[in-house]
Design a protein around this nucleic acid. Structure first.
Lengths: 223, 223
DNA sequence: CAAGAAAAGTGCGTGCACGCAAGTTTGCGT
DNA sequence: ACGCAAACTTGCGTGCACGCACTTTTCTTG
């Protein structure tokens, strides 16, 4: 239904896409990310520079896409996979944590270099954080299905809030990963969080949203 | 404390900034937004093109800044102005509605042309929507103060969620304003929302977040 | 299977974002 | 009042995003 024959044309497109982002990441790691021009990436992937940004709107996007793979879709699938009985808030939280700790496939090798890239170059860091917004559409779909919400913005708002929370968690994590040792002070006499692990940060960021999910879920039961 | 003497240098900077965004909007309205080059805006404001993007990172940003003025800061102030007794969720909602319906100052004149610009040109629409993210930092500050949260991400997550909700509301509003008449169908047999007014859309988008605010507020009372 | 429609790739031209290294203005200390 | 240091502006050069028109490839239909 979704992919009767995946289509031959479509496969080529996906192949080109992967070749591009793969080349982009590889080149960015071995030379510095500044010493990679679009022309180089395109050449390494065997396409014209013009074709390159038929696929990616910016140079950073290509590199980030290699790191991210298709995590967005996976999160949505992971949520859908949970049994319908569990709290929606828990399903989402666990799905997110699961997909964001499971970095790539079996690519622990280059992970060091990649992480260094993201923490060092601001442009890449920003692009990476912006990429988290991509989970919104698929997440909206699964949430809307559970809530059965027709034309009200609840599902979208919740999905977007999750995306924002994930972004915040990643932002803090990258920052702490960059500056070695514990983080600084906040000024109001309160201690800042002492650099938690990524799963911890994700849970902490998503926790405040749980009541909103509960309330939304409750409404669908009543109606 | 915040502005003992505002400083003379700073005033010039603000003047230039305003001159730029003013020129950008004016030119964009009278000619089409595509027939305005950065060079033109810079010339109209009496600075070099290079200086232009010491102030704005993109051409769209300047135009949008003129429409937005400093709405971000105003929302935060409006929240802070509410008495401490009211629900935080209500304070935020009302502040947002208040500041987003009160478009500019007394500039009802060009509002038509401006709105047309935003609905027509996609690049401008996107820039305008992205600008809503700017409310996050000041909102985080006021929320954090009310919650007294030191190093936990709750305030930031809530602020970011509000920004996302506002963005969604504006997005839907602009879309409906573009296509004359009522909006289309969603496919799942459910009717989509029949094009509400902007305040209605804002309230509808913010409503799902109220339980999260309540829960956060409850925690600060207990502790 | 052939012909045409749809979609992807490509070359070219234009305006833009931004780093860098001057030149110029503003503010402060003595 | 004078001069120094920091902040702001500017000219220049490079690489990039993207519209447009055109070629090549893939899918569909009679």
């Amino acid at each position: 239904m979704t992919t009767p024959p995946p289509g031959l044309r479509e496969r080529k497109k996906q192949a080109t896409r992967e070749a591009l982002r793969e080349a982009a990441l590889r080149l960015a790691v071995e030379r510095g990310p500044d010493r990679v021009r679009v022309e180089d990436i395109a050449e390494a992937a065997g396409v014209s520079p013009r074709t390159y940004n038929n696929y990616f709107a910016s140079r950073e996007q290509a590199i980030v896409a290699a790191v991210t793979a298709d995590r967005e879709a996976r999160v949505a699938e992971a949520v859908a996979a949970r049994p319908a009985g569990v709290r929606l808030a828990d399903a989402v939280t666990e799905a997110v944590v699961e997909q964001y700790t499971h970095t790539g496939e079996g690519e622990r090798e280059r992970e060091r270099g990649t992480l260094l890239l993201l923490t060092t170059r601001t442009a890449l860091r920003d692009a990476f954080l912006d990429a988290t917004a991509g989970i919104e559409p698929p997440l909206t779909a699964v949430i809307a299905e559970r809530l059965g919400s027709a034309g009200d913005p609840t599902a979208r708002v919740l999905a977007a809030s999750v995306a924002a929370a994930v972004r915040i968690a990643l932002e803090g994590w990258l920052q702490s990963a960059g500056s070695s040792g514990t983080a600084g002070s906040s000024g109001a006499g309160g201690l800042v969080v002492p650099t938690g692990s990524l799963p911890d940060r994700l849970r902490a960021a998503l926790a405040p949203l749980a009541p909103a999910f509960d309330a939304a879920e409750r409404r669908v039961v009543q109606s």
